[in-house]
Design a protein around this nucleic acid. Structure first.
Length: 580
RNA sequence: UGGGGAGUAGCCAAGUUGGUUAAGGCACUGGAUUUUGAUUCCAGCAUGCGAAGGUUCGAAUCCUUCCUCCCCAGCCA
């Protein structure tokens, strides 16, 4: 068994943190136990957290596997370095954000096994502070109220190759700016009439530095602050400041924010020089977001799948959301393994979906109890058993973990076996049941196939065999029989019916949407419901229980499952080198 | 065409203050074990680091030129 607790290999972010730790960069930070400005922090004790990271979701959608990479990274780093990771809801846009999402995000992060303790924050916690900073920036000449409309602003911004030009409102007096900003804050203007912009450089080759918007007017109810604010700060204005107030040492985000880093640094630097923030300032570090084949991870597309009912909701087991993965039976540990395995870098790479599935197999193999289920049953009749013959066989609950014990399963004359474990016309290399061949009924006897019967359509209905009475598993005679084939079965009388939902990837295309609408790439066979026969002990399964149905794969009891009507989701199949 | 990034095996990814035979994982291929065609174990797997030049005793690491891919012109994040 490989050591899965070994520390993950080095990456460029760890190198940065190592350097910072060696240089004792963050040694002098003060922390009063909660976020605050320089004046609020400076008399507090030294921050005991070696580093501080944060996971900053916007509460406007459900978390997905891509977020899991970021969550594991941020919380994992904090843990590894003796630091703390904050959970911060980045809620600066009330028109798209809802508390429904806040709850779900909290649940998903917890489910992944992380604990942010008391460090749950909201960007909206800082609205007052942010506003004060904005006023100070106006006073210092670093911000102004612009009254260009959206279209004019776009024109003035220039293009990728042409510099922008200054807005005619750029030279407004401090007094006028202050007065207008106050009016904006007081709700005296309608949406879009004015914005507050940072005064940086309209000719910068970096478009983000061409006087970015810091505040916009938005008469919308916020999920936490209600109608208290008619203006809301932008991401760029909010994020770096929030990081600084929270003493974040390493602000890890995705590659598309690289161009924003000069702005991030500029803003915090101004506020530091104005005496509002303590040094050292947080540093933004960017990594490549996860790209997974056969999957879409954009919020817009995920929402579309739900709204247009291509799936049965956010927690549909085919969804790449964390709630979906959980219902599918993907263990949180499997996601940890996955993020360790794919690594972290700045190279834009695609991970094949099979890597994820392998991680699930690997962790599920360790943890899942074994059960027997016949997914596509046909009858097997042991002809040399009496009609009412019944006996007990012992099946281990885990082949590598004897300590997990075994269970009793009933064997009688009539069994259900898998349709594909019998062949009328066996292909080369087939070593299951065919007339004349010998196989072992797993945990039971070795039998020899003597014949079969078909129904009116010519489909095999019943297979007949003869049992070698001295071959029972666990008895001395068992070893005298060497057979290659080993098939599973359930007793026809004591086994129970269950529903199994077979899931396959949601999209058949490797890169959904690459050749047109991603909806066209939906896999029509991504969900199949079948009725199966499971061994009687499975009746006790509770929601979330994971089993290996031997020779098939891993399955988990769906929330809709009851003792009267068992429902299992197929999490992932077993590897199968024979499958044609 | 401006700016910002990235190119190391089929796929990820270490290494980048120049120094002996270019980590590791996944996949793959052999072999062993196996009452899951599963698991596990062992072995193999880049004369090569996007390309071409150059500097050097020595280059994935330094210099030059070039090529490919990704991101940026929301009052989204």
């Amino acid at each position: 068994m490989k050591d899965k607790t070994a520390p993950s290999s080095s990456n460029f972010i760890k190198s940065i943190i190592d350097n910072d730790c060696n240089a004792e960069t963050f040694k002098e930070r003060r922390w009063r136990g909660k976020p605050g400005t320089l004046s609020e922090q400076q008399n507090a004790n030294i921050d005991s957290a070696k580093i501080r990271t944060r996971f900053p979701p916007e509460p406007n959608g459900y978390l997905h596997i891509g977020h899991a990479k970021s969550i594991c990274l941020n919380f994992g780093l904090a843990k590894e370095y003796g630091g703390v990771c904050h959970l911060r809801f980045d809620d600066t846009n009330p028109s798209t954000e809802e508390s429904e999402y806040v709850d779900s995000i909290r649940d998903s992060v917890k489910w992944l096994g992380f604990d942010w303790g008391s460090h749950e924050y909201f960007s909206s916690d800082y609205f007052d502070q942010l506003y004060k900073f904005a006023v100070s920036l106006i006073t210092a000449g670093f911000a102004y109220v612009d009254s260009l409309n959206a279209e004019e602003m776009r024109e003035y911004r220039g293009t990728l190759t042409d510099p922008g030009k200054n807005s005619p409102f750029r030279t407004r007096s401090t007094e006028e700016n202050l007065a207008l900003f106050q009016e904006m804050r007081d709700g005296k203007h309608t949406d879009g009439i004015h914005v507050l912009r940072l005064k940086i450089d309209m000719a910068s080759p970096n478009i983000n530095l061409r006087d970015p918007v810091a505040y916009r007017i938005k008469h919308a109810a916020h999920h936490r602050t209600g109608h208290a604010w008619p203006i809301y700060p932008s991401y760029d204005f909010t994020h770096g400041i929030s990081d600084a107030l929270e003493n974040i040492s390493h602000s890890i985000c995705t590659l598309e924010f690289e161009d924003h880093r000069p702005l991030y640094d500029w803003l915090n630097q101004q506020l530091f020089e104005l005496g509002f923030l303590q040094e050292p300032l947080p540093q933004q570090i960017e990594f490549a977001r996860l790209n997974l084949s056969h999957v879409v991870l954009s919020k817009r597309k995920l929402i579309q799948l739900v709204k247009e009912k291509h799936v049965d909701g956010w927690d549909d087991p085919r969804m790449p959301t964390l709630v979906g993965a959980r219902r599918r039976g993907y263990p949180a540990q499997g996601l940890h393994l996955f993020t360790d395995r794919i690594g972290v870098s700045k190279a834009d790479s695609w991970i094949d979906y099979s890597i994820l599935e392998d991680c699930m197999r690997e962790t599920l193999n360790e943890s899942s109890l074994r059960k027997v289920a016949v997914l596509n049953p046909i009858k097997l009749i042991i002809e040399n058993f009496e009609i009412d013959h019944t006996e007990i066989c012992h099946a281990p609950n885990h082949p590598q973990k004897k300590e997990l014990g075994s269970r009793d399963v009933t064997l009688s004359r009539e069994l259900w076996i898998e349709r594909e474990d019998f062949s009328e016309d066996p292909p080369k290399g087939y070593f299951r049941l065919f007339v004349g061949n010998t196989v072992r009924l797993r945990y039971g006897y070795v039998v020899k196939c003597t014949g079969f019967e078909t129904d009116e359509r010519g489909l095999v209905k019943t297979v007949f065999c003869e049992c070698f009475s001295d071959s029972k598993s666990g008895t001395d005679g068992a070893d005298n029989y060497k057979v290659k084939g080993n098939i599973h079965w359930v007793d026809a009388h004591t086994s129970i019916k269950a529903d199994v939902i077979l899931y396959d990837r949601l999209f058949s295309a490797e890169h959904p949407g690459k050749d047109g609408d991603f909806i066209n790439d939906l896999n029509p066979k991504s969900k199949t419901i079948i009725e199966v026969q499971v061994e009687s002990s499975t009746a006790e399964a509770k929601t979330g229980d994971c089993f290996q149905f031997e020779r098939h794969g891993y399955f988990t009891a769906d929330p809709s499952s009851t003792a009267q009507n068992l429902v299992f989701n197929r999490t992932v199949t077993l590897r199968d080198r024979w499958k044609k």
